[in-house]
Amino acid sequence: MTFPEISLPSRPLALKQSSLSLPRGYAISLPIVFLLTGLLFYWQAPNLWRDYQISQNPLVMEDGRLVDGECKVRKGVFTDCDARVAYTYQGKSYESDTHIFFVDAHSGNYETDIVISADNPELATLSLGLDKLENRFISFGVLFGVFAIICLISIVLGVRTSYARSRLTTPALLTPVPVEIATYKESFGRLLVTYADKIADDKTKRTAYSRFAKGQEPIIIGEFDGSPVGLAVRHGNTAYPVLLDAGLERIKMTDEERAAALASIATARETVADEQPSLREPPKKGRFLRVIIGFLAIILVIAGLVLGYWYWYVTAGYTQFMQAGMEINNMLPAPMNEWGCDQLQKRFGDQNAPYGCTASDFKSWK
């Protein structure tokens, strides 16, 4: 696309730190990923280390007992086996739990023996675990590596964004650049935008994130490969370009400079689009009325279900002492309550009356 000529003050300018953001949910997802990585290590690493030690000098226990041994296959290939082993070695009894995880397309049962370390008889596992030891190390390495890479990428993103934010308050020359709006979502009045620096001649191909408060939105100057193009600025050597808001409030400059810059942008945009598109959804007429109608419809559906259940209770229920039915019948207006009690009495008149249909003695029918 052809990027229009836009004039900004030629002096160094500072930007608001809030102009750059982290991805939505970053503060929650990062500790969760770290926790999952730690749990994976805690779940598998001790078992792998134990079985590696046993594999150096294994000894099969012919008279050992396998208790509650079970293997579960998930997604067709992920096999997870647990068992409790009991054995006697050199007159001393041992018991321990063993767990192994590996990837296998096997179907059917596994045959296995109890194997201990001849050097350290307290260490015991299954021969299946030793047979699959290389498989287990590879499976663990791949899974742990994936989680570790996600953690590393998250840390790099957080550090790089935090460092870039800290540099924005230091005045530097601003260079206007176009950026592709990758995704955007409006939530509780705020606009969450993900944009990529891959249009400008000196593109970095980095992705950045920005939040716009209620009433604010980015400046859209065109379209590139079907995606909106926003106006951003490079702040000196800062890692990410900063997406500008429509009022240029993110740039710390005088009112006169801001007015001149906005006029320059308006003039430049006339050569690109007839009117400025918006990423925010326009107010929908009748939205409040539709909400009210939807709410009333839900109330009517619930009321219909409750009354339907009540009708079934008084005419076909298997007992007069159904708790929900008694509560509903007791809360209904007197005519409906009386009719319901009459229906119940026709079927259960020779028994005690339920709550809502009792006389003063709380037993007989009213």
Rank of each mutant, 00 (worst) to 15 (best):
G247V: 01
A246K: 15
A261K: 04
F295H: 02
I251H: 07
L243V: 06
A260I: 09
E281P: 14
G286V: 14
E270W: 03
I265G: 10
A246W: 05
K252T: 10
E249H: 13
G286E: 11
R269Y: 04
L262N: 13
R269S: 03
K252M: 10
K285R: 13
I251C: 09
L289P: 03
P277D: 10
I293P: 02
I251K: 03
I298E: 04
G294R: 02
S264D: 06
A268L: 02
L289E: 10
P283A: 09
A260R: 07
P277Y: 09
L279G: 06
A273P: 00
L262C: 15
A246S: 15
S278H: 08
F288I: 10
V242D: 01
F288H: 02
V291I: 14
P241E: 00
Q276Y: 06
A259N: 11
V291E: 02
G286A: 07
P282S: 13
A273F: 07
T254V: 00
E256V: 13
A246E: 14
I265L: 07
R269Q: 12
L289Q: 07
T254A: 11
G286T: 14
E257T: 03
G247L: 07
K285C: 01
L243M: 11
E257V: 00
I265N: 02
V272Y: 01
D255I: 10
I293D: 04
M253F: 05
I265V: 14
T254Y: 01
L296Y: 12
R290Y: 10
F295E: 07
E275F: 08
L262Y: 09
E270P: 01
R280T: 10
K284G: 03
I292C: 09
A259C: 02
A297S: 13
P241L: 01
K285T: 00
I265K: 06
T267G: 08
I293C: 00
L262V: 12
A259I: 08
D274C: 05
L279I: 02
E275G: 05
R290E: 10
A246T: 14
S264Q: 07
L244D: 06
A259K: 12
A260Q: 04
V291K: 03
A273T: 12
P282K: 12
A266F: 13
L248R: 01
A261F: 00
T271F: 06
G247I: 02
L248M: 06
Q276L: 10
V272P: 01
A273W: 00
A261T: 06
P283S: 08
R290L: 13
V242P: 02
L289S: 12
R250V: 15
K284H: 01
E275Y: 12
L248S: 07
P277R: 14
L248F: 01
I292Q: 05
E256M: 08
P282D: 12
I293R: 13
E249S: 15
F295N: 04
L243D: 03
